[in-house]
């Protein structure tokens, strides 16, 4: 059996509300909240980056996996906000958890899909027997340009999964990846903020790709929407996953446990992986979960997971994702947010 043997998430405690951002730009907060179903988003403090989020998420995954970190043979961190342009994030994560030195390591980048990419590769490696365990992390401290629509959603968080063949929590039954060259969102080298194609990011990009991957994997698995207990989609805002779920025939109850974006924002590479952690937190043995990521550029990775009996043993060995999401929050104003995100020009 191949699948997830440990999972964990991490979210910064700070939040900013949609109203607080809208106030600064003279935008209409109610229309953002209603139109995109966004309420607030997580904000990383200056001492938090993709590496620190990845380490903390991985430590939670290790608490559940209860394995020796030295047995992890591959470490892959997927992000579009790796702290270094050149130098891997994964080596720091591997060093911090004690997986070095006998370990393969690479950083992944594919807009919001880098985390699921790492998960797919890790599953392949443990299935092939190349490594005993493989660690996949999806995490970001994503940046939205000041005043841009993305500023209301670009947030921070990470999810980590340890893949293996023994003591599996969620077995992978099927995978399918779908991708085309669709330039809906990009950031050129040396540019600080990404750019996007506005409404072009919708129908021809997100919806076509997500439904393409979802329909293909369900066909492969000979399943339909009603066969699944839960479904997790990439969630660039609150609205898209609900709409794509509706298009595919899913009910809101199937989506809800992993639908974090209204109160988390879009954690990019962490988005659907974190949705999966929240879903595993409440899943029962035997539950079937469909997960479909999305990364601009554009592609989707889809997975069908079947939860095992072991979930009941490990669920509470680490903090639940919704606890990190909903409790002990610190709200910041736009000035503090702008300082934390280095949006204020200072003298050198």
């Amino acid at each position: 059996m191949v699948g997830i043997v440990g999972y964990g998430a991490h979210i910064p405690r700070h939040r900013i509300k949609v109203e607080e951002i809208a106030k600064v730009w003279g935008a209409d907060a109610p229309s953002y909240k209603k139109g995109l179903l966004l309420r607030e988003k997580s904000v990383p403090t200056p001492d938090v980056d993709t590496i620190t989020l990845s380490v903390e998420a991985t430590r939670n995954a290790l608490r559940r996996a209860q394995i020796n970190p030295k047995d992890i043979g591959a470490v892959y961190v997927g992000s579009e906000s790796h702290p270094y342009a050149v130098k891997p994030s994964g080596t720091t994560v591997a060093e911090a958890i004690g997986a070095v030195p006998d370990c393969h390591c690479a950083d992944f980048e594919f807009a919001c899909k880098a985390g699921s990419e790492a998960m797919f590769v890790c599953l392949g490696l443990v299935k092939s027997g190349y490594v005993k365990y493989a660690l996949a992390v999806g995490g970001d401290t994503s940046q939205g340009a000041p005043g841009d629509a993305l500023e209301y959603s670009a947030s921070a968080g990470a999810a980590a999964f340890i893949m293996g063949t023994k003591d599996v929590i969620a077995e992978v039954l099927h995978t399918h990846s779908f991708m085309t060259d669709t330039p809906d969102f990009w950031r050129r080298e040396h540019e600080f903020y990404p750019q996007h194609g506005g409404r072009f990011t919708g129908e021809p990009a997100y919806f076509r790709t997500v439904t393409g991957a979802a329909n293909a994997i369900m066909k492969k698995a000979k399943m339909t929407a009603k066969d699944f207990d839960y479904v997790v989609f990439h969630q660039p805002n609150g609205k898209f996953p609900l709409r794509v779920g509706e298009m595919l025939g899913f009910k809101k109850e199937q989506i809800e446990p992993g639908w974090l974006s209204p109160r988390l924002g879009n954690t990019y590479s962490g988005a659907s992986p974190m949705g999966l952690t929240a879903t595993l937190d409440i899943a029962k043995p035997g539950d079937l979960i469909l997960m479909v990521s999305y990364g601009s550029g554009a592609g989707s990775d889809a997975f069908v997971w079947r939860v095992t009996d072991r979930i009941n043993e490990v669920r509470d060995l680490a903090v639940h994702t919704t606890k990190l999401l909903d409790e002990n929050l610190i709200y910041v104003d736009y000035g503090t947010y702008a300082k934390y995100r280095h949006k204020i020009l200072k003298n050198k």
Binding site: P46, D47, V48, I51, T52, E56, R59, A96
Partner: peptide, 8 residues
């Protein structure tokens, strides 16, 4: 104890 960036 949480893993954090201490100096940039």
């Amino acid at each position: 104890l949480e893993f954090r960036k201490v100096q940039s």
